[in-house]
Computed example of a mutant assay.
Amino acid sequence: MRKQDIVFLACAVFLFILAFSFPSIGSKGSLLHPEKATSFLAALIFFINGIEIKKEKWFEFFYLRDCLLIQAATFLISVLIGLLLHELFFKNFYLSPLILAGIVLLSSLPTTVASASIFTKIAEGDSTFTLINSIIGNTLGLFIVPLITGYFIPNWHRESFDTGLLALNLFLIALLPFSLGLALRKLNPGDAIKLFLKYFQRFLLLAIVYLSLSESFFQIDNDFLSAKISYPILLLETFILYLLFLALSFILSRFMAFSRKRKIASIFILTQKTAVLGIPLAESFFLSSSEQSFLLFPLLFYTLIQWTGSSALLFLLGQKEKLN
């Protein structure tokens, strides 16, 4: 494993401990305004990706077979995995049936808007493939995820969900900065600038990691529903779900005979779930904060697991490359 990757993982571990120790930074309206800062950092990552992307790689967008299979795995197979796992093994551990809706919401979410492509790039995978699928998945997810999750919530008021606002946010966070980056790609930045952008992206990802973990720890610590939710059981269920999504990525990659770079991309696409889309969705389903919390808890626990798991995967993939 390269020295810079070890430094990155060490920083990630430090930020995990810091977020756990001082989670109040994740509260809305705090000094760093995490709900706004995360979107801004993600937009910067997409802007840099637009500058760095190679023209010939962008044309791979038109080879839709692999992308369609990834989206089917995200919105169909992953949901079936989440449903079966919960109904067969964990259903009787919770007093609230809304936990099932929370598991469905988590399972049906597309990949993270920016971090999955950065993790893929650090692991020397096909970051363009990850980038394209994150844009496609988050666009489709605006319409598919509410339909899937709403099926398991009888008293959901559909009119409370603002698809237009989320679509605007996706445009401002992903499509617009990426397009601006593509337009500026013609400037052909020098090697020194490219090296700076490479490490700057890692810094941005670490900042997103810290803000996301702080927000998760803050919401979990400040909720009053622990009597109705067994935290260890939910942590175990979301951890198993992460492992199943990881197994799905391996099976899919083997079935499609993906190259090593695309296998790495598939791993992070199918195991990373976006809280940027999931949290606004959960908040739109109910007016009651307690009901929102039941819906959000699986996603919050999974967020902690996916950041830890992605960091571990960077180490394992680096070791495997060294052995090869």
Rank of each mutant, 00 (worst) to 15 (best):
F93E: 09
G137F: 05
I229W: 13
F16V: 03
A174Q: 13
V145H: 05
P232M: 13
L85F: 08
L213P: 00
E35R: 11
A114F: 08
S253E: 03
L147H: 08
I53G: 01
L211Q: 04
E321P: 09
V79C: 08
T38L: 14
L95K: 15
L98P: 02
F61P: 04
S107T: 07
T271G: 02
I269R: 03
A116C: 11
Q319W: 11
D126C: 05
K273E: 02
F46S: 02
E35K: 13
L166C: 06
K228C: 10
W156L: 10
T128C: 13
L168F: 15
T38C: 09
F75H: 11
F171T: 10
Q219P: 06
S21R: 14
P232S: 09
F46E: 03
Y151D: 05
W58C: 06
T112V: 09
L69S: 10
F258H: 07
L300N: 02
L252I: 13
Q306P: 05
Q319D: 00
L296H: 06
T271S: 01
S284G: 15
S293R: 14
G82M: 10
R185D: 01
N169Q: 15
I132G: 06
N49D: 05
C11V: 11
A312S: 08
L187I: 15
L187D: 03
G50M: 06
L84Q: 07
F218C: 05
F47Q: 01
V79H: 09
E159W: 07
R185W: 01
F143Y: 10
T111H: 04
P280Q: 06
F75E: 07
T308I: 14
Y231W: 15
G309W: 12
S310E: 00
L277Q: 07
T149K: 04
L206W: 03
A73W: 11
S226R: 09
I136M: 14
G190W: 14
I25Y: 10
